[in-house]
């Protein structure tokens, strides 16, 4: 290495170092360059369409199970029974927020647009069970029993009407309805137990699948957190389930 190259090396090292130090100095002395967002005190503006925690508006939900089918990680579970007016009634709607990956596929397929992403993104829990959001506060078994009772009443009414007409036109259809009604009555009397072994006529949707899922429910925790002001009213504490959940944990 010649002397010239040697000296060039030194000069280049000094010059490039000085260049770099000028840039760092500029950032060092200019307080406007600080970009830190002091998170708990300051928050960034959340854009529309942000994919935060999921929230299901159970009033408009039709229990069509599209979200359950489309979820790639199976984090949504729902139970439903057919109500007296032939529409599906939700018995439970749970989202395991710890398993959810916020991909938004369920929101896209939701036909009544009841399932939505909120802007909520903060949540802390002590037990894993607390990560399961329950959107229906009432016990699933109670709802099923109630719906079964309603169905039974409706069926009884229909039976009475049918019986009035039966003398004129006996049909195979009424017989089935009557059978269903009897089964429903039995279910209603059995109370919560009915949830596990639902009579075939009444709650066909919440069949074997439902019983499997009810087994999961006690494991799950207590209440959904206040993901946003709009969703705050939906999930309510479920004291019994909470206790069980804690015991299990």
């Amino acid at each position: 290495m010649g002397l010239k190259a040697y000296m060039n090396d030194i000069v280049e090292a000094v010059v490039t170092t000085a260049k770099g130090m000028r840039i760092t100095a500029r950032y060092g002395v200019d307080p406007r360059e600080e970009v830190t967002l002091q998170y708990p005190e300051e928050r960034w503006e959340i854009p529309e369409g942000y994919r935060g925690f999921l929230h299901n508006d159970i009033k408009t939900c039709t229990a069509c199970t599209m979200c359950v089918k489309t979820c790639p990680v199976d984090c949504i579970s729902l139970e439903s029974v057919r109500g007296a007016d032939k529409r599906m009634v939700l018995a439970s709607y749970d989202i395991n927020i710890g398993r959810c990956m916020y991909c938004g596929l369920c929101v896209e397929v939701c036909p009544p647009k009841s399932l939505k992403h909120t802007s909520g993104y903060e949540m802390a829990s002590v037990t894993r069970g607390e990560l399961i959001l329950h959107f229906i506060a009432e016990d699933a078994a109670e709802i099923k029993a109630r719906v079964a009772r309603q169905v039974a009443e409706a069926a009884a009414k229909a039976e009475a009407q049918a019986a009035a007409k039966a003398a004129e036109v006996p049909s195979s259809g009424t017989a089935e309805v009557a059978k269903a009604a009897e089964a429903a009555k039995a279910g209603a009397q059995a109370g919560p137990k009915a949830a596990e072994v639902p009579p075939s006529g009444t709650a066909e949707a919440a069949g074997a699948q439902a019983s499997a899922k009810t087994a999961e429910v006690p494991l799950s925790g207590t209440k959904a957190p206040d993901v946003s002001s709009e969703s705050a009213k939906a999930p309510v504490v479920e004291p019994k389930a909470a206790k069980e959940g804690e015991n299990k944990e």
Partner: peptide, 10 residues
């Protein structure tokens, strides 16, 4: 603190 200032942090 100097690191913070230089790195556009606090």
């Amino acid at each position: 603190k100097v690191a913070g200032d230089i790195q556009a942090r606090i």
